[in-house]
């Protein structure tokens, strides 16, 4: 009998603070599986945000820098520019990336920074107790939209991948989800493509992962997965919104 599935080495062997059924744990594992397969953990620098995943510095086995809220792409830019041979990635939530950090996200894309952005979209600010995020769906109830998000007053959710795909410096903008095993496999492939892009110096790769927040959604972990499938995916269609490598192959 051989072990066919176990914790990736790049993921520290510790229990996490994430709530039961939270999607962060799955995405952490996928990122670390990719880092294992590429054998780059010794040359990797992770940049973690402010939010539920701030304490990922205890989980990612590589060197980690904790960035101020929203500024991870800028911190990653600084780290990558002076260490071009290192693998640098940010791991950010939707409040961090799509609200306070929008400028840093867009400009690391326009500059084509050779970094990977793992963007977790769970439609809420998890750490602070479930407030509305830029990705909160119309009508969705949160701490700060107690009567459901009213787009007349609280505006519309932002589709990051579509926005980023318009920037020339972006090599990959792909949205995936972790609500089912096939989607998890797809997510891993996208993450691998993103890190390959970085190693091949193709510019910025952003992988948006539709994920869950059972605690703040007030749903069970399995019901949360259904929410991703039934409510989030229709508003945030999965797919590749930009892929320079594929475009170039097609052009050949």
């Amino acid at each position: 009998m051989a072990v066919v599935f176990d914790r990736p080495n790049s993921l520290e062997d510790v229990s996490t603070h994430f709530c039961p059924g939270c999607g962060h744990g799955i995405v952490h594992r996928l990122v670390c599986e990719v880092l294992d397969e590429m054998g780059v953990i010794g040359d990797t620098i992770a940049v973690v945000p402010v939010g539920c995943s701030v304490m990922s510095y205890n989980y990612f086995g590589c060197d980690v820098i904790q960035a101020p809220h929203g500024r991870a792409p800028a911190v990653a830019t600084g780290a990558k520019r002076v260490n071009p041979d290192k693998v640098v990635f940010t791991y950010q939530g939707d409040g961090d990336l799509a609200a306070i950090g929008t400028a840093e996200t867009v400009h690391s894309g326009t500059r084509g920074e050779n970094i990977v952005i793992i963007f977790i979209n769970n439609t809420t600010y998890g750490m602070t107790g479930g407030q509305m995020a830029p990705t909160t769906l119309p009508g969705q109830v949160t701490q700060t939209t107690p009567f459901g998000r009213n787009t007349d007053t609280a505006g519309f959710p932002i589709r990051i991948c579509e926005m980023m795909s318009t920037l020339s410096g972006v090599a990959l903008a792909q949205r995936v989800a972790i609500d089912s095993v096939p989607h998890i496999r797809e997510a891993k492939k996208a993450i691998r493509k993103a890190f390959d892009n970085q190693v091949n110096k193709r510019g910025l790769s952003i992988v948006e992962v539709l994920s869950t927040c059972p605690t703040n959604w007030g749903l069970s972990p399995t019901a949360s997965m259904d929410f991703v499938r039934d409510k989030m995916i229709p508003y945030y269609p999965l797919g590749v919104y930009k892929d320079k490598t594929a475009d170039e192959e097609a052009a050949k």
Binding site: V47, A74, G78, V82, A103
Partner: peptide, 26 residues
């Protein structure tokens, strides 16, 4: 060395933070 004009002073100081974290004079 590296010169980069950031999108804001906020981004600039955070780029310094990132570079300094890796042990480089920034």
């Amino acid at each position: 060395g590296v010169f980069l004009q950031a999108e804001s002073e906020i981004a600039a100081i955070n780029m310094v933070l990132g570079a300094a974290s890796t042990g480089v004079r920034a």
